[in-house]
Amino acid sequence: MSLFLAQLSTAEPIGGLTLAHFLVVSAVMFTLGLVGFLSRRNLIIMFLCTEMMFQAAGLALIAFGRFHMNHTGEVFVIFVLTIAAAEAALALALVVLLYRRKQTLDAEAWAELQG
């Protein structure tokens, strides 16, 4: 762990905030998203959780971009957002379709295929 923090601490502080802070937030977001995905049963909320995980990555990218003083991270984030949007469109269409079929958004209603 010390190695991990040592790498981070070399970064130039941004108003007292170090890269570590951003990364911790990002990691927390990612974990929250993951936990949410695992614990919630509503399809829409589950989807939102994946979005949160995407955005956690986005946050990390931004922070790294600032850390490395280049714009690659930001460019990446733009594309991530695009993809997220596309996924959102897809997700919503699917969710609507499913709701029409079963009148429920409970993910566990869909467990016919198994084994």
Partner: peptide, 13 residues
């Protein structure tokens, strides 16, 4: 392979 989405997700995670 319970067929439940959450189960799979837990497995992956």
């Amino acid at each position: 392979q319970s067929g439940v989405l959450h189960g799979y997700a837990v497995g992956m995670a």
